[in-house]
Design a protein around this nucleic acid. Structure first.
Lengths: 213, 213
DNA sequence: AGCCTTATTGATCATGCGATCAATAGTGTT
DNA sequence: AACACTATTGATCGCATGATCAATAAGGCT
């Protein structure tokens, strides 16, 4: 009984194989971290020789950077999509805080934290990190500015406030990565803090129901 | 001309050599990250054979964990010392926020961020991280509770608020690790957010002078 | 002065990494 | 049916890691 038959991998169209590789890298990163993206790990995951992965990517650094961007950009688009469905900036901001503190997204948080460190030695990755941080900040700034225009928020520096909110979310998520217990009502406390920063009424950013645990 | 004479290292007392090794690991971590702590790197830094480092440490994982604790615990003690010199909780909290956002401490922030990731594969390190996070939280909670006792603050859940403040600080610092520009008045915005959470008067946590750049 | 404890060496092993490239074999086209 | 293109292999190189341990030499003690 051969648990791993070791047959030659079926020949596939380049585009298909390339997609398979980036997909494997993506799953690997989400499950075990960006640093487990190696030629051998990715190749093994799709039953292919290590050299083939190298053949489809200029180098591993680029694969890591690309995987980071794929994972993070997808989340941004997803959340931006959720935003569009809400009528008022107040509700949009509330949903944003609620969604981003969701523990189901801890795997993405782990990617962010690892990228911050890996970026010190992978310049391509560092550039992607800055790019995606800017994208997140733009989303937040947009909501804050819309709130100001609608008369719901009041702050003189939407850009800085957006960065600040982003930083807080990142920090709380990173914390949750290591410490699960201890903090109760993360959403409530954060909402209160943000309400203070954007000049919204107390409680105006809280979701109706206690919702997610 | 031999730039590196390669002589045998002078024999030293075990305690002294051990201290030399932990010190080298410490500096290495602060300069180039926890992951550059290797038997060879540490040994080279003090002009000693790799095997000697292994002789003084059970394994590299332990050296990394110990180095993390040494760096972080020292900072906590230092800040706790500064706290003791201030009369009122309001000033203590203000100083804390101001001090911890100081860019001069970015090297320690980098250690924290790297430890969060490395903790996934180094259980000893993970335990140290949780321990030091608890220590920081305890310091913050103490200040918040003192503020409540003094009638300066008002919140029903000092423990959670302390965790929250800690998370915010961590997040903003991690952000500063990657993005230097964009955010102005980090201290002011954070102070405003924290004032909201602890129920302090607006502006009461701001330092007198703009102080550190 | 001589010995004996032990700090220190450095070679070694097994492992994993990224990268490279000649050889191989599948596939669509002619 | 033969061919040509190219996806795929897998062996290989150089380098780095942690760990181990017999051999060496320094220095304190008698």
């Amino acid at each position: 009984m051969s648990s791993t038959p070791q047959k030659r991998a079926a020949r596939k169209a380049p585009a298909e194989r390339a997609a398979e590789i980036t997909q494997a890298a993506r799953n690997l990163a989400l499950e075990r971290g960006l640093s487990t993206i190696t030629l051998r790990n990715v190749a093994a995951r799709i039953g292919v020789a290590p050299g083939l992965v190298a053949h489809y990517q200029p180098n591993v650094e680029a694969l890591v950077a690309g995987t980071f961007t794929a994972i993070v950009a997808e989340e941004i688009e997803e959340v931006a999509g959720l935003l569009a469905g809400l009528p008022a900036p107040r509700e949009q901001l509330g949903m944003l805080l609620d969604t981003l503190l969701d523990n189901a997204r801890l795997d993405v948080t782990a990617i962010w934290v690892e990228a911050w460190t890996l970026g010190r030695r992978n310049e391509a990755l560092a550039a992607c990190v800055r790019e995606q941080m800017d994208a997140w900040q733009a989303v937040l700034q947009g909501v804050v500015e819309a709130g100001i225009a609608a008369g719901e928020f009041e702050t003189s520096d939407p850009a800085s406030v957006a960065w600040q909110i982003l930083g807080m979310i990142d920090g709380l998520n990173a914390q949750a990565l290591v410490r699960w217990n201890g903090v109760s009502d993360r959403g409530t406390h954060l909402a209160r803090a943000v309400e203070g920063m954007v000049g919204a009424a107390r409680g105006s950013l809280l979701p109706r129901s206690p919702s997610r645990s």
